[in-house]
């Protein structure tokens, strides 16, 4: 094991909080992706739906998904803000 790798391991050990936050960002992004998928499905259903009542229900669900996604994105931004000095790590692909 070279010195660089060893130092990296020590840093990770000493900085468990950062790891937790990174893990949280990854998890939220995964849910956001699933929500986006669900949103697409609902949009497609909405386009084909003729019944007013059903359309209203779909619209409502879309509103909720929008609010949830916004909440998720805000949380990710907040976490990123807290991790600013670790910018280099965040550049790595998360999914």
């Amino acid at each position: 094991m070279n010195v660089k790798k060893l130092l990296e391991r020590v840093r990770l050990f000493l900085d468990a909080d950062t790891q937790t936050q990174l893990h949280e960002i990854r998890s939220i992004r995964k849910v956001l992706k699933a929500l986006k998928e669900k949103e697409r499905e609902l949009q497609a259903s909405l386009e084909h739906e003729k019944d007013d009542e059903a359309r209203e229900a779909l619209q409502l669900h879309l509103e909720v998904i929008y609010a949830q996604r916004k909440k998720g994105v805000d949380r990710v931004l907040q976490l990123k803000e807290a991790l600013k000095p670790e910018e280099d790590i965040l550049q790595r692909p998360l999914d």
């Binding site: 949280e24 998890s27 939220i28 609010a67 949380r75």
Partner: peptide, 13 residues
């Protein structure tokens, strides 16, 4: 999942 729980809307939202 903790992430899923974080996105649940609260009463105010």
């Amino acid at each position: 999942g903790a992430a899923e729980q974080q996105l649940v809307l609260n009463d105010e939202e």
